[in-house]
Design a binder for these strands. Structure first.
Lengths: 130, 130, 130, 130
DNA sequence: GTGGTCTAGACCACG
DNA sequence: GTGGTCTAGACCACC
C-alpha cells in the first residue's frame, strides 16, 4: 500500500496518516475526485482501529484535502485548489526557520547556498509530516 | 523579566521556557557562565509550578546549554561551544522544509528569493521554540 | 436536465434531489399536474440508484409537493396550494436566524439594511435545499 | 449547569454541546480566558462519554472559540476576536434564507417587516445550534 | 488533576 | 458496502 506507519514517529497515528495522504494528494499520486481507501479497509490494511482512521480523514477533510459523500466514500480534492494555500503555509514555515537561523548568526548567503547545494545529502523524510 | 509564557502555545510549558532560555544564551543576552535565575525564583516570577521550571532546566542542561554546580546554582554555557551544533540543527530543519517545498512544486529559486526578500514582513516568532 | 447533483454537498442525495424538485415546482418551472420524470428515467439520467430517487419522491410527496397515481406516474402539486405553507416555513427559518443574529449583537437595522442591500453579491445557492 | 442536552434533537451530541458552549462564550456568559469545565467533569455532569465531550471541545477549539493548555485545562477565547467572523457567518446564513424567500415570491418588504415585527411570537431556540 | 490518543465494539443513516 | 456517532475503558504526557 501507499501508506506506511512508523511507530517510532512521535506524532500521533492519525496525524501521520493524514499527513501522508495529504502528500499523496498534493503530489498528484492520488488524482482529483479519486476515491480514497474506505475507513474500514484502511484500518484493516494498517492494522489500526477504524476510529483512528476516521480521525485522520476528519483532519484531512477539515484541511480541504478531501470530501466525503454519505454512503459512497471519500474522495480527493483537486490539488490545484489547495496547492496555493499549502505553498503559502510552507513559505511561512520557511520564514520561521530563517528567522531562527538569522538569530544564531547564520547569514542569508549561507542559507541560500545551503539550499542550492543540498542535493545529495538527502534526509529520509519518509513518513515525515507534509 | 526576559521570559514570557504564552498559554495559547501548543507546546508544553517547560519546552517553551527552555526554548526561550536557549535563545537568550545563544544570542548572548545571557553571557557565558552567567548565573541563571534559580528554579524557585523563576517559578514565582512566572507563577508556575517549580517542577515545571526544573524540567525546563533539565532539558536545557541536557542540550548542553547550561551546567549546574551543586549548591551554587545553574550557569549558562559558552555560546561559542554550542552554536555550531545549533546551526547544524537549524540547517537540518531548513533542509526538511526545503524538501517539503520542492515536493509541492516550489523551486529553489522561489525559496532563495523568498529568503532574501522577506525582511519587513516579519513573523512574530516571539515565544517560538528556538 | 434541470437537476444537477453536487457530490460535495453534505446533504444526502435524496434530500438534494427532492429539494431541487420542490424548488422547480414552487417556482412554476414545473407546472401543476405536470408529470414528473419516472423513477427509472431520472435514476438513469443522474446515474443514481433508483432506490435513492424513490426516496426523494417519497419525501417530496410527504411534503405535499406532488401526488402519485397508481400505474400512471407522479405529478406536480399546484404551487398555489403549497406555497403558503412553504412561505410560513421559510419565515420560521428566518426567525431563527434573526434570533441568532440578535444574540451576537447584530441589530434589526443592520439585518434589514443587509437584506435590502444584498443584491449583487449573490451566493451560489445552486443546489441549496429549498 | 449551563448546558442541557436534548435527546430529541437531530444533531449529534457533540455538536449540540459545542454549539451551546459557543453561544455562552459569544454572549459573554463565559468571559475571556475563563476556564471551561474539564472534559471529565462535564462528561459526568451530562452523563456522556468523555470522548464525546472531547470531540465537542475539539470542534469548539477548531472554530477558535477556546484554547487548551496541556495539563491545565481549557479556556474561553476572547469574544471580541471571534465575534466579527461569527456575525459574518450569520449574515451569510441570512442571505441564503433571503434567497430562498425571494424565490417563493416573498418580497424584501415582507421580510423586513417580519423581522421588525416578530418580537412576541418567539421561538424556543433553547438548545438550538448557535 | 488536566488534555490527548488509541482500541474495541456497537449502532445508525445513506446508497 | 459507505461514513458518522457514541460508549467503555485504557494509556500517556503535562502540571
Amino acid at each position: 500500500m501507499l501508506i506506511e506507519i512508523d511507530y517510532r514517529d512521535k506524532r500521533p497515528l492519525y496525524e501521520q496518516i493524514s499527513g501522508k495522504l495529504e502528500e499523496l494528494i498534493l503530489c498528484g499520486v492520488i488524482s482529483a475526485d479519486e476515491a480514497l481507501p474506505s475507513v474500514r479497509s484502511l484500518a484493516i490494511d494498517l492494522s489500526i482501529n477504524p476510529n483512528t482512521i476516521q480521525k485522520a480523514y476528519d483532519a484531512l477533510e477539515q484541511k480541504g484535502m478531501c470530501y466525503s459523500v454519505a454512503g459512497r466514500g471519500r474522495f480527493a480534492a483537486a490539488a490545484d485548489e489547495v496547492l496555493p494555500a499549502k505553498k503559502r503555509e510552507i513559505l511561512d514555515e520557511l520564514g520561521k526557520v530563517v528567522d531562527k537561523a538569522l538569530k544564531v548568526g547564520l547569514t542569508r548567503e549561507e542559507l541560500t547556498s545551503y539550499i542550492n547545494g543540498e542535493k545529495e545529502e538527502k534526509y529520509d523524510t519518509g513518513n515525515q509530516s507534509f
